[in-house]
């Protein structure tokens, strides 16, 4: 396989579901739901991409098609050069998957046994397995957890175990579904550091679906936003922030409570005592606004807030 071949190629993929609903005692109505509706994108090898979208946007359906669990209704997918639906088992050796809500570990077995089982299932040579395991145990600080049954682990501990389990056969591509959901700040940080490490040092391509935009901000240079089964945005986080209609905010603390300040190029959106919030288009420079404020008013302190990525994405969904 050519090295410059993308890790993932998705071309005009559709996926519809028949949903049957009860309508009366015996009658049922059928409804066709378009979960994925003409999706196209590429992911290059070694990229770390965030896949965002509200619930029901088609993220999970997309990941299921990329892993070969679900067959697309139409369109073409290639993952590390393979057709996932047709070559599901061959593909399985080359990808790692962490489904956030479902465990890839054995609930009643100690972590150590789960890892040993995965070695047999993926048929990994003992020495390679031992080396990879040693590395992940250290990076993910699993050493003290190895003999504890998975069901007795905390959520954060379990998630570290899940990620190690998905990586032990050294896949080229890793899918993570909501990896930091429910984790505390420290666990989140640790997990993000680890993901960055394997992405940079092993060159593992990572696709992350998440609701946690903190994950995206800290990990992904590129973001794909899906809504109603379509791609509504593909680009960098900065580009996402500069989208039309989004705003940056200048927060200014004046010496005394005053009426709304008047500055060209910005509008006051909120006043709270001596503190005022000014909004300006995210494409515009904040410098003239700051200069005007400093010249005309008695400014004690001043801060510039980038648009919250949540707001940007929420606005995207509304437009889609």
């Amino acid at each position: 396989m050519a090295a410059d071949e993308p890790a993932i190629e998705v071309v005009d993929v559709h996926r519809t579901f028949d949903v049957r609903r009860r309508a009366g005692r015996l009658r049922r109505t059928r409804q066709v739901v378009r979960a994925v509706d003409g999706l196209s994108f590429d992911v290059a090898r070694g990229e770390m991409v965030g896949l965002l979208g509200p619930n029901g946007a088609g993220k999970s359906t997309t990941v299921k098609m990329l892993t070969g669990i679900l067959v697309p209704t139409s369109g073409a997918l290639r993952v590390v050069g393979l057709d996932p639906a047709a070559a599901r088992t061959r593909l399985a050796r080359r990808i790692g998957v962490v489904f956030g809500q479902r465990s890839g570990l054995w609930w009643d077995l100690p972590l150590r046994d789960s890892f040993a089982l995965l070695r047999r299932i993926y048929d990994v040579p003992a020495d390679r397995h031992a080396a990879a395991l040693a590395e992940f145990v250290e990076l993910l600080e699993l050493g003290e957890l190895m003999d504890i049954p998975v069901r007795a682990l905390s959520l954060g501990q379990r998630m570290r175990g899940e990620i190690a389990a998905a990586l032990l056969h050294e896949p080229e591509l890793l899918y993570l579904d909501e990896p930091t959901i429910g984790l505390d700040v420290v666990s989140k940080g640790r997990l993000r550091d680890f993901l960055r490490t394997i992405n940079v040092e092993r060159g593992t391509t990572v696709v992350l679906t998440t609701h946690d935009l903190g994950d995206v901000e800290r990990l992904c240079r590129r973001v794909l936003v899906v809504d109603h089964g379509r791609l509504v945005f593909d680009g960098s986080l900065d580009a996402l922030r500069r989208l039309d209609g989004t705003t940056r905010t200048v927060v200014v603390d004046l010496a005394t409570s005053s009426p709304q300040v008047e500055v060209a190029g910005a509008v006051v959106t909120r006043v709270d005592g001596p503190r005022q919030w000014l909004s300006l288009p995210s494409g515009a420079s904040a410098a003239p606004v700051v200069a005007q404020l400093a010249a005309a008013y008695d400014v004690v302190d001043l801060a510039i807030q980038e648009p919250a990525i949540e707001d940007v994405v929420a606005r995207l969904y509304q437009r889609g």
């Binding site: 070969g68 669990i69 088992t89 061959r90 399985a92 990808i95 479902r102 890839g104 054995w106």
Partner: peptide
């Protein structure tokens, strides 16, 4: 509960995994 999905992404037939689990 979706645990079949985790079996379908492993390189061993799902039936073998369902029976052995």
């Amino acid at each position: 509960d979706g645990s079949l999905d985790t079996m379908l992404v492993r390189p061993v037939p799902a039936l073998v995994q369902v029976a052995a689990d």
